[in-house]
């Protein structure tokens, strides 16, 4: 991407906790420098200024859960040269995709006295189910260093360097003792996409998979390891069903253990 004027950056929110877009404001040392290089054209969490598109880069947080949002993401796509999803909601449907495993009619009648007041779809789905996505940044939340890397890469017209290997590699690089091998703590690290720098094992707990599945994960083998460690079927289902529950490899593995 070679642009002489300042590229226009837009940040959009769908169903989410606001944490991934907050990651940009959490770049306390870099924020003002970033604004020297890009024109923040739409970022409601931070500014009342709203500039019209088209936008050079759109960062999209959150999952699609309403008909209104189905239409909104299409307009955003039409108005964006590059569309990058940030975080587990936008990339996999998020924690709110736990609804996807319920019979939605039963679910709605259980929850709502007056469902006609509530506008919601039966499933929480990732952005890529609705529009083409140019790049996906994983994590619940994303790692702000990776966000800076993605912005920097696109500004310089290169491919972002965000490795797709497992959390295990990051653990080895930190010289962590394996929590599963040495302490028998169930850990999703072997099947989980890198990016967090193995925070959970570094704090002596098992990875809970908030970066979602890595490429070609061997979830079946890991589940049988979990069984050997004493996890029953219900707990194996719960382990795969959190913030990336609807990402296909995790979804299939949890469904295999569901009665």
């Amino acid at each position: 991407m070679t642009i002489k004027r300042k590229p226009k950056l837009a940040i959009w929110k769908f169903a989410s906790c606001d944490g991934c877009q907050l990651s940009l404001l959490d770049c306390e040392d870099e924020l003002l420098a970033i604004t020297n290089r890009v024109d923040i054209a739409y970022f409601l969490e931070a500014t009342s200024t709203v500039r019209k598109g088209p936008y050079d880069i759109s960062l999209v947080e959150g999952s699609i859960t309403t008909q209104h949002d189905v239409k909104r993401i299409q307009k955003i796509r039409q108005n964006s040269k590059l569309l990058v999803t940030i975080g587990a909601c936008a990339t996999a449907g998020g924690i709110q995709a736990l609804r996807n495993f319920k019979n939605v009619n039963d679910f709605i009648s259980l929850v709502y006295a007056k469902p006609q007041y509530i506008e919601t779809l039966d499933k929480s789905t990732p952005i890529a189910n609705h529009v083409p996505v140019d790049y996906e940044l994983r994590g619940c939340p994303i790692n702000k260093r990776q966000l800076l890397e993605v912005l920097s890469a696109f500004l310089h017209g290169r491919k972002p360097n965000t490795p797709s290997y497992s959390v295990c590699i990051e653990c080895k690089r930190r010289f962590n003792v394996c929590v599963m091998v040495s302490c028998g703590i169930p850990c999703l690290g072997p099947v989980t996409h890198a990016g967090c720098n193995a925070i959970c094992p570094s704090y002596h707990r098992g990875c809970y998979g908030c970066y979602g599945p890595m490429e070609t994960p061997n979830t079946t083998s890991l589940s049988s390891q979990f069984s050997q460690l004493g996890l029953d079927k219900d707990n194996i289902v719960r382990t795969f069903r959190t913030f990336n529950a609807y990402a296909e490899p995790f979804r299939k593995e949890s469904e295999a253990y569901e009665k």
């Binding site: 169903a15 906790c17 924690i95 609804r99 929850v111 959190t242 913030f243």
Partner: peptide
């Protein structure tokens, strides 16, 4: 986003990690 609904049937140990996601 249905938090109270899907907290049902979760383990008590998961509540702090799940409810954190209400607000970043």
């Amino acid at each position: 986003r249905f938090f109270e609904a899907f907290l049902r049937e979760r383990n008590y140990t998961e509540a702090p990690d799940i409810t954190a996601r209400i607000c970043g």
